[in-house]
Write a protein that binds this DNA or RNA. Structure first.
Lengths: 222, 222
DNA sequence: TAGATTGTTAATCGATTAACAATC
DNA sequence: TAGATTGTTAATCGATTAACAATC
């Protein structure tokens, strides 16, 4: 759970990829992809709908149903090939390519993001890191040199960046969001606690671990 | 979107709090709470279902519907009081109290989590930070002294910790998850890229910013 | 073969939405 | 009052699930 999308679409009954996926289907396919990517890292070659269900908390019948709408990817009695299912889902989500992202903020969170491969595993490359603190500009973070915010507009255009990640304090977030929008970024990932105002064509996704935790806690306490 | 829960429940038709909330309702209420908390930080006193809808991407009619199932919290022509709606939703979610969490990993991510108030804003207190690196044990992270992993079991019991946050590399995650389970933690927040195996009574929530990003990207590309 | 797991159907249930009267 | 926004209804649509034949 987290802040999501406004788009809409039913998709043809067979869901063969020429129509838009429904919000629910796209969300679930993304979840399957997450688990499959982890499973691949751990050397797994096949996985059953039952196992996928345990890790995603989605009903196994629904998983088979979701997948079979796009083709017969599984082997009866065996399960799904992890590797080929990753390829299929990426194709269905049309996110098989590489996408460039800009990271704003070179503090602890920025460092953590730049150093991990959570984004790289899914085809996202952090091509630039920005900070407004002169002491940080020029330093190395996760193998990249930190640039000054003033370069944002130029770099976004040069590197064809469509996603901006805000790993900054709440007070600086709106102004930086404005600059990302001006530079042409269409998706903003907000790790700050600010409520961001953006034009309708831009999507903001606000990360909210504490809210996810509240949600999990509800079911533990109830 | 992210890995979620397995619990189930319909709740009485009026949803008056004596039954369990459905998964969807609990997830949406948590989202409203996130935005309300941000709005309060920015000094907002009231908010309309229309505004809540813009920030949460949930239909405004559904928001009014969700809330009116529990009482008449709004003022026609005005909207909802931010402050009192926060109180009401916390009551409905039964998460009004304080909850103690243990943070495992004192690297960049651990530092970022310990230093931010994303958890504190929602009633979660990081009461202990652990690391296995002797060089980190004893240092100060976000105002807390880092302890050695060996103390985990004792501290979890002493401090009544129900949530463990794994901010460690994938290779160390499963072993630490096992130790959290042994110590009695019921909810594990996993920031690593490992697939964790836990007993059925324990809930694992795996954070997946890249997957959320794929999901947002789908609607941008489609 | 025997066991396991997919692909698919059919039935049910909850989510979603538009519309509008009530009322602040 | 006039404008705005809630609370609520009714209709539709998609999600969910159990069950099982097909088949690896």
């Amino acid at each position: 759970m987290s802040g999501e999308q406004a788009a809409r679409g039913v998709g043809s009954p067979g869901g063969n990829g020429d129509g838009r996926l429904s919000l629910g289907v796209a969300a679930r396919l993304s979840r399957y992809l997450q688990v499959l990517t982890q499973a691949r890292k751990m050397g797994r070659e096949t996985i059953s709908s039952q196992e996928l269900a345990e890790y995603t908390h989605v009903n196994p019948t629904q998983i088979r149903r979701d997948l079979s709408a796009f083709g017969k990817f599984g082997k009866r009695g065996v399960g799904y090939s992890v590797e080929s299912l990753i390829v299929e889902i990426r194709r269905i989500l049309r996110t098989a390519g590489q996408h460039n992202i800009a990271l704003l903020g070179a503090g602890h969170l920025g460092n953590a993001i730049a150093s991990s491969d959570i984004f790289a595993d899914h085809g996202f490359t952090v091509v630039a890191i920005f900070d407004s603190d002169p002491a940080k500009v020029g330093t190395d973070v996760g193998g990249k040199v930190v640039r000054h915010i003033d370069e944002l507009d130029r770099v976004v255009k040069e590197e064809d960046i469509v996603v901006g990640v805000l790993a900054v304090p709440g007070g600086a977030a709106q102004q930086l969001a404005d600059e990302l929008v001006r530079a042409g970024v269409k998706i903003i990932f907000n790790y700050s606690d600010a409520l961001l105002s953006v034009p309708p064509e831009v999507t903001v996704h606000t990360s909210s671990p504490a809210v996810d935790l509240l949600y999990a806690l509800y079911f533990y306490l109830a």
